[in-house]
């Protein structure tokens, strides 16, 4: 039995979530192969070869894979993956985009966002925005799975010495082309991997007021997130959204500011180790999950917090 792990990267460096996906692969058991598909991404394959527990790295370096277009990546993964028992990818927007397409090409079902491995064919995953946890068993010969990174402790990035082999099945399906992208540039850590996250909700009232959170975040080395309400109101961009339909985070410390705590938001952050809520409404549901609640006007409390750090 062997497991194929799809590496998440930006052609220059491996993304940390891949180490969590390898952890899930280890829990399943068997030889672990990492597939690195991209353009000019040989350095990523070198990094992948050092991951603890990886026995082989496959490198598919071709212009067709440079922008992770699902049509091309899914065809590659289905071709390379047909000899494996499991195909694992991170439950990121990249993994969610190509993995179901690859599964359908292989005529197998798929299991999304597993949070634990019970056995080689049985997994736990959240449903209904995390209000229920389903234990599911796959009867397919190849199990295509996306892994919730925050649910698995990353394996060591060093210690392995896998061989790197090139795979030559490059094909541009000719169905789609990359036009451009706007990636938010920030010196703050990425939301999904940050140790501390501070998020604002509708209570922030406007986008300018998020400046208060950025100041606190910079003192703490934190990432800044937002509730869907704040995104819907246009305060901040969607890539900051934490929740059922946004990012799932599980930092050491999560600070919710002016967030009421709708179940869709809780779904994205309730596995955080310590939760702090600052809200002027003492009945807000966020206080039911908060370790430390402060009933206060955020426009007084946040500047005060800033001054005390």
């Amino acid at each position: 039995m062997s497991v194929l792990v799809y590496a998440e990267h930006d052609n220059a460096a491996l993304k940390g979530v891949t180490l969590s996906v390898v952890a899930a692969a280890k829990a399943i058991g068997g030889d672990i192969t990492v597939l690195v598909a991209g353009e000019g991404c040989a350095a990523v394959a070198g990094e992948a070869a050092k991951i603890d527990g990886v026995s082989k790295v496959l490198l598919a370096d071709n212009a067709a894979y440079g922008h992770q277009l699902a049509e091309n990546i899914a065809a590659l993964v289905a071709e390379v993956g047909k000899d494996y028992g499991h195909i694992l990818a991170a439950a990121t927007t990249t993994g969610k985009n190509f993995a179901p397409r690859a599964a359908a090409l292989l005529d197998v079902g798929m299991i999304s966002e597993i949070q634990s491995v019970e056995s080689a064919d049985t997994f736990k995953r959240p449903i209904y925005a995390g209000n229920a946890i389903a234990t599911v068993q796959s009867s397919d010969s190849i199990k295509v799975i996306t892994v919730r990174g925050t649910s698995f402790d990353a394996v060591a990035a060093e210690g392995g010495s896998a061989s790197v082999e090139s795979v030559d099945v490059a094909a541009d399906a000719g169905l789609s082309s990359f036009v451009g992208e706007e990636i938010a540039k920030s010196d703050r850590p990425e939301l999904a991997g940050a140790k501390i996250v501070i998020s604002g909700g509708r209570g922030m009232q406007n986008g300018d007021n998020f400046e208060m959170l950025y100041k606190v975040a910079d003192k703490l080395g934190a990432a800044v997130g937002a509730s869907r309400a704040a995104v819907d109101a246009g305060f901040v961009p969607n890539d900051m959204q934490v929740g059922q339909t946004g990012k799932i985070v599980a930092p050491e410390l999560y600070v919710a500011v002016g967030i009421s705590g709708a179940i869709q938001h809780l779904a994205g952050m309730k596995d955080s180790k310590v939760i702090v809520a600052i809200n002027k409404d003492e009945e807000a549901p966020i206080f039911q999950v908060a370790d430390y609640g402060l009933v206060a006007d955020l426009f007084e409390a946040v500047p005060e917090l800033d001054s005390k750090l």
């Binding site: 599911v136 796959s138 397919d140 402060l294 409390a301």
Partner: peptide, 28 residues
């Protein structure tokens, strides 16, 4: 015909509400 069988469905682990702090100072 379903390919994935649901063996069981459980409620998630409940998180206990913590304490209320009186001030930013106490929170820090």
């Amino acid at each position: 015909t379903p390919r994935v069988k649901t063996i069981k469905v459980e409620p998630p682990a409940e998180r206990q509400a913590g304490i209320k702090v009186a001030s930013v100072e106490e929170l820090v």
